[in-house]
Simulated assay, not measured.
Amino acid sequence: MKKAEVTRLYKFSDAQLIAVGNEKIAFMRRDLEAFALFGLNETQFAALETQIAAFSNLVTDIESSSNQAQISEKKEAKAEELRTAIRAVMTRVAQKYGADSARYKNYGVGVLSKQSDADLIITAKRVVRVGTDGLGDLASTGLTAAFLDNISLLNEQFEALLIEQKLKIGERDIQQEDRVEDGNAIYSLLVIYTQTGQDIWASKDVAKYNDYVIYNTVSGEAAVTAENPV
């Protein structure tokens, strides 16, 4: 059964979650005696603080995205090197047989710039295979085994970068999912603890009650309404 997509329970940023979490822990420590009556103590608050610290040290999606982009750029650069090498062979084949000949079409190159990554890999292998069989006839055009060996090498490098790109995409998805789950765990605990804080001060101290309010908005601040104007 496919795992359901993990979604955030909070609308504000991870950085805001970290800031809010540390702020609320400070208030909880201030009110330790009051929280003790509800079975909450320093051990639990310290554990939450440790969770928040670990969360703040996680690789961010910006970093993961940057790493993925760098691999993609390397892969695209290698793909262009490979296309250039293939074109160098096909120019010689066209010179020998003509671009409309059956021998030219046997290489199955088509329009290189429109080929998918997977198709480019197959095309490169086919060019090497067919080109190797026709080396004798194409020697007069300057085609050598070194040309074909270079295509094989570039193709191997391109395929390796393609695999690395796929792995980076997968890693990024996993990291993002883990980050959302960890953030949700912290937020859920904060809601429980701060709700207790609100209950403690609801009828005793408005200022302290407000210390435990978490606004689940994009800004992390109170939403602007007609009753609550800026």
Results as ranks from 00 to 15, higher is better:
93 V>Q: 04
199 D>W: 01
218 V>P: 09
8 R>W: 04
75 K>C: 14
189 L>E: 13
26 A>F: 03
69 A>T: 05
181 E>Q: 07
179 R>D: 12
132 T>I: 07
147 F>P: 09
116 S>E: 11
200 I>R: 01
89 V>R: 02
90 M>V: 13
197 G>A: 07
127 V>M: 02
164 E>H: 10
45 F>M: 06
175 Q>P: 08
93 V>P: 11
9 L>I: 03
203 S>L: 12
113 S>V: 09
199 D>Q: 03
176 Q>E: 14
86 I>S: 02
136 G>N: 05
219 S>L: 09
229 P>R: 00
122 I>G: 15
89 V>K: 02
201 W>R: 05
177 E>H: 07
133 D>E: 14
113 S>I: 11
45 F>W: 02
226 A>W: 06
67 N>P: 03
129 R>Q: 14
152 S>L: 00
93 V>L: 06
162 L>H: 15
186 I>F: 01
222 A>M: 04
119 D>L: 14
226 A>E: 12
108 G>Q: 03
157 Q>Y: 13
45 F>Y: 01
10 Y>Q: 13
154 L>M: 06
69 A>M: 04
171 E>Q: 05
188 S>H: 06
226 A>Y: 10
83 R>S: 13
28 M>I: 11
96 K>W: 01
62 I>R: 05
16 Q>D: 13
43 T>S: 07
154 L>H: 08
38 F>Y: 15
81 E>G: 15
26 A>P: 09
71 I>M: 08
50 T>G: 08
75 K>M: 14
50 T>K: 02
31 D>S: 02
87 R>H: 09
190 L>Q: 01
197 G>H: 07
128 V>C: 08
179 R>H: 04
26 A>S: 07
55 F>H: 12
151 I>T: 08
121 I>A: 14
69 A>E: 12
141 T>I: 11
129 R>L: 11
63 E>T: 14
158 F>V: 13
61 D>Y: 07
183 G>H: 05
66 S>A: 06
138 L>V: 15
82 L>Q: 00
166 K>N: 14
62 I>D: 13
108 G>R: 01
62 I>K: 07
102 A>Y: 07
82 L>S: 00
162 L>K: 15
144 T>Y: 00
121 I>T: 09
36 A>L: 12
186 I>K: 00
76 E>L: 13
52 I>H: 05
108 G>K: 01
1 M>S: 12
210 N>W: 03
207 A>N: 03
66 S>V: 10
31 D>W: 00
132 T>A: 10
112 L>M: 00
219 S>T: 13
119 D>I: 10
21 G>C: 09
27 F>N: 10
215 Y>C: 15
189 L>I: 11
12 F>Y: 05
70 Q>A: 15
149 D>S: 13
